[in-house]
Amino acid sequence: MFKPFTGLLAEFKSPASVLAAAKALTKAGYTTVDAHSPFPIHGMDKALKLKDSPLGWVVVIVGTLAFFGAFAFQYWANGVAYPVNVSGKPLLSYPSYICITYGFMTIVASITAATTMFALNGLPQLYYSLFKVGRFAKFSTDGFFISVSETDSKFDKEKTAQLLTELQGEHVVYVED
């Protein structure tokens, strides 16, 4: 679930240069390149050839289940388990179930969206080797970083470091988990 990280970290000056470096590294065949930025950089997912997030499908499926589950439960509770006769209307008077069906779906779907996001990202992960690099704290303000993991098949401590420097990367460091 939690991926430890050992590899190289390089700092870049601007969103444009970090995007260019990410494109170049991916073109060179690296697959574990990751960028760290204070805000999402437009086009970074394409540059790193990341697959589209499956999060939407998870929310759709769970939300649909919650929708029909809430509807079925209301009918079961007020129509089967303890039939409640409200002014002679049919037990399956679905218009009166709409509000709660929708509300429950929203509760479940919003919690699902959040928890799925955390699960897919492997968060919360309080310890991460990059945090040990003092300069890395800049990522949340105005720093743009690229990390390459040593699990990458193309990874070579010296060659990769040199490539990062060529791509205008600064303060290239090797970080161990």
């Binding site: 990751d34 997912d45 996001m117 897919l120 968060l123 945090f131 949340s140």
Partner: peptide
């Protein structure tokens, strides 16, 4: 433990 990773931003 947010680290602004591009993969994280995606999700």
């Amino acid at each position: 433990g947010w680290r602004g990773s591009a993969r994280h931003w995606l999700h």
